[in-house]
Design a protein around this nucleic acid. Sequence first.
DNA 1: GGCCAGGTGTAAA
DNA 2: TTTACACATGGC
Length: 217
Amino acid sequence: MNNSFELFVALKNQNLLSQTEDLNWWPNSGSFEVIVGAILTQQTKWVKVEKSLENLRVHNLLHLEKIADIDVKILAEFIKPSGFYNTKAKRLKMLCHKIIEVYSDFDNFKNEVTREWLLAQKGIGFESADAILCYGCGREILVVDNYTNKLLKSFGYEFETYEQMQEWMMKGIEENLENIYKLYEGKINLYTIYSRFHGKIVELGKSKKDIREILLC
DNA sequence: GGCCAGGTGTAAA
DNA sequence: TTTACACATGGC
């Protein structure tokens, strides 16, 4: 493997996801729920996040204003299945509060928020910020993570920082955009490419498949 | 029973 | 500026 484009193409044909999941890997992309999920999923399996989200949903709390106002103790109770519930509750509530303060509502936030602003919030690191930007706001940005790191390392690529790894991954895609558009007969855009790429990498990581097999094509 | 998950912040060295 | 540790649940 010489660049991330080759990795993307190899993963494209892996059928790691069902068609539906594949199209929109992060559940309810583009909604406020992504912000909640991004925090809850930190160092936690997604099935646990689903439990927490369900707890919030049945109490009609999956709204920016509701979480900004809720008592942290109660919020912590609802998100308990996702672990680190005290810190996550505190940070999630604070984030929602700040979003309302600065952007008024989620739609404004979606259009106007910057990566820098997100990174300045407690509880939002590189990965959560990028997940919110991509899956929550529909921005053209690729999330990288531990799975990406492991995967690249197995092919001999090592990076000093998150952002160096991300830059290498995004560069390989952007330099081969025309080829990807051809592969999909023009029925794809950069957002969707990044969205799926990260999803595929995560699913591959979870599947514990032999990483080497994927490039035998 | 240890290990790990769709990480992040902080304190010590 | 690195490294170590806390945060915590639950499935395998």
